[in-house]
Write a protein that binds this DNA or RNA. Structure first.
Lengths: 261, 261
DNA sequence: TTGACGAACTCCTCTAGAGGAGTCATAAAG
DNA sequence: CTTTATGACTCCTCTAGAGGAGTTCGTCAA
């Protein structure tokens, strides 16, 4: 606390005490007085400084945590959250030229950036298409699909979970229904099967993660996720795959190029 | 509470009591037992039901609120958050054909969907370009830009704030530097000035809102925002505008079409 | 040198209160 | 019929404690 000098409370303010305290710490973070990874003064120190009860301090720290500004580590302290390196997903990442080099988009991209990509928890099942997926694929309600779910990691850190749905009538008996879908990934396989890919549509949402997502992606509290649903269309206008991915929003920037014509 | 039957606590569990309570209510919401807009049992009722202290209940409700599942209304109760109608932003929304109809993208789109669009808080200044904007526009560090900031509303509800930066050497003295930029918006003006727009690049991030953003967009707690930075390029490859927008993530789905070639 | 122990520190969970302030329906007063 | 009060209900803020559990580091014995 000697290092960090926080202001005093303003007793004339009608802003709640715990909010004032949160404001002070937030300002210190925004101004860089408290840098990434720095330790925030302990509860005891803050109680002492402000002369308030422990719960008031904890309320203030709770605010900052749910804003994604800090993380608490049991037994160690509260720290200013540090941001992981950001991955940029460009809109040409599924271009055929990449696919033809024999690597799946994720692998090629990650190695290009100097990281060690890996894929995890691959599970393949055949099941009835969920309603929204059936709609996107233009299938009947009870149509069956191959479901490929997996998790992507970079240097051992999980960054993204993905679930692909491919109509069973297309994928059944092909390598698409195998855990290792082969060089170039399932898009390469689809093209080999004669489905000439024309374009993708990506729908992007953002929200707070579910509990399973926090666990699977090892997310800090206060970090939202992107949910990206990609549908692949052939030159005939037929949808052949839907991929539903969830990724940590602070590890990604999504980048798209769109025509002005 | 008569209507809603929550499970009892599991005393053998090592999961904290307030987390168990949050889990119960979360499940009720996910299963639809508690629907959008429904009132969650009051603190007093939950205290009674679980036989725990008020702070324990408040902790549980706090968890749900920061997950964006509920909103508390002072004096009224805690309610399951209802989601506003979602606006889909398609990647062709800046197509020239729309521009030529004489309406700015936002206005045309909103009217098409049956809403009443309006624009608010328009402020135009000339200033030095922020560092990141200067980089995107390919300008020198001390270059001057026209800064157009405004807020978009639908049926009186704010949905998006936006700040555009246009190099002063382009915009100075033109209608771009006026509050009313005229039919078709500033992209139409740029084309009239001879800057033929070729494509846009949009970078999308997501994070928890700052306090000002929560106020400006009237965001509920636990709702992240999209930050979308769009750069407009001419056929010469010159960047002529950067637009930095912040929008409520639960009012928007961003949709992009990308080529597979 | 190594390893076990313990003290001091950290955040986490929970209790049991108090007063404040916003909302709403109802009853009383105009 | 309108307006004003009142009371019951809601969530909000804050206090003052208690014990628990994880981390760190120095001490001391082997």
């Amino acid at each position: 606390m000697a290092e960090l000098s926080l202001p005093e409370l303003d007793p004339t303010s009608d802003r709640a005490v715990f909010r004032q305290i949160a404001d002070h710490i937030r300002e210190a973070i925004e101004q860089g007085t408290l840098a990434e990874g720095d330790k925030v003064p302990s509860e005891a120190q803050l109680m002492q400084h402000y002369g308030v009860a422990r719960m008031t301090i904890r309320n203030a720290l709770q605010v900052l945590q749910s804003e994604g500004l800090t993380v608490a580590e049991h037994g160690r302290g509260v720290f200013v959250r540090s941001h992981p390196p950001v991955r940029r997903l460009a809109s040409d990442r599924f271009a055929r030229r990449h696919r033809q080099e024999g690597k799946a988009a994720f692998i090629a991209e990650t190695e290009g950036a100097g990281g060690k990509p890996s894929v995890d928890s691959i599970r393949i099942t055949e099941e009835e298409a969920p309603a929204d997926v059936a709609t996107l694929l233009g299938l009947a309600e009870d149509a069956r699909v191959i479901r490929r779910s997996r998790r992507y990691l970079i240097n051992g850190q999980p960054v993204e979970t993905a679930v692909s749905y491919i109509p069973a009538e297309i994928a059944m008996g092909t390598r698409i229904a195998e855990p290792d879908s082969g060089p170039g990934g399932i898009y390469a396989r689809l093209e080999e099967l004669g489905y000439r890919l024309d374009h993708f549509v990506e729908d992007i949402r953002s929200r707070m993660p579910l509990r399973e997502e926090m666990r699977a992606l090892r997310l800090a509290p206060g970090v939202p996720v992107f949910r990206l649903v990609r549908t692949a269309y052939t030159t005939d206008g037929k949808a052949v795959e839907v991929c539903d991915t969830v990724m940590s929003s602070d590890a990604y920037v999504l980048s798209y190029e769109l025509p002005a014509r």
